[in-house]
Simulated scan of single mutants.
Amino acid sequence: MPEQKVVVITGASSGIGEATAGLLAQNGYRVFGGARDPKRAKSISGVRFGTLDVTDDASVASFVDWVLSEAGRIDILINNAGVSLAGPVEHTSIAEATRVFDVNVFGPLRMIRAVLPSMRSERSGLIINISSVLGFLPAPFMGIYASTKHALEGMSESLDHEIRDFNVRVILMEPTFTNTNLDVNAANTEAPLGVYASQAEATMKTILAQIKSAPAPILVAEKILVALKSPYKMRQPVGGQATLLSRLRRFMPAKAVDGSLRKTFGFGKAPSS
């Protein structure tokens, strides 16, 4: 019988992380889930939880050391932990932006730095970074969140070239809106909306409606499971809408994409330049 693949999932106590942990455990993977407070995580058969704060170097090192002491290796890292932020870019403080980057970009970087020595030693490994369609598309009033996903995509593509010779690869999962607490309960910038109030409120209402009717996290989990069993492909849009958006971004004229996005987010016709 083949030895179980060892999987580490960050942000595994809710949303996409929780759904993925459960599905992979059901399918024979040995799953270690990271959570800031494991006591608050719902018990999942076949999943072991440990304390993990991806914004803390010592916490990341301790968690990875624990997994390696228990399992001897890490075959798959799924960087899922994330936070969101809504509000005008102009009204976003540096401190607010830094908090989002610390979780969404530097968190994966900390985890990657911690697991790569083991993966390179084994000359085998896979890193799956949970990105978003906002990793290749803009989103008004979600500019900092979109920026983190654009940064994650750039880092992932660069990293894949660096580690490929060690038989370690990187995959980008690109879901569209998913019905999770992360999206429904996104933090807002602290500064008043001011001149942006009318458009920001209309846009966020549109986005919230899309989130509430969006697919459940299990759709992303199922895509991850398929990716683990299929030939390698770096960019993996999740679901029909994400796949369509990915194709439109690549093949539609920029002006058409711009107009379509403004319509989707409830903006009026763009002024002539």
Rank of each mutant, 00 (worst) to 15 (best):
K5Q: 10
T10N: 08
S14M: 09
G15K: 02
A21N: 03
A21W: 10
G22V: 05
S43Q: 06
R48N: 00
T51K: 12
V54C: 08
A58N: 03
V67E: 08
V67K: 04
I74L: 09
I76E: 08
V83C: 07
L85I: 12
G87S: 10
G87Y: 05
P88G: 12
S93H: 10
T98P: 03
P108T: 06
R110P: 09
M111E: 06
A114E: 01
G125C: 03
S132C: 03
G135D: 00
G135R: 00
L137N: 01
M142S: 09
S147F: 08
L152V: 01
E153Y: 07
S156A: 15
H161T: 12
E162L: 07
I163N: 02
I171R: 14
L172I: 10
E174A: 13
P175A: 14
T176Y: 08
F177L: 12
T178L: 10
T178W: 05
T178K: 04
L182D: 11
L182I: 09
D183I: 13
N185K: 08
A186C: 04
V195L: 14
A197F: 01
S198F: 08
Q199Y: 03
E201I: 14
M204A: 07
K205D: 08
K205V: 06
T206N: 09
I211L: 10
I211C: 08
K212D: 04
K223G: 03
I224Y: 02
G239V: 10
S246Y: 13
R250A: 15
P253N: 14
V257G: 01
K263V: 04
K269R: 12
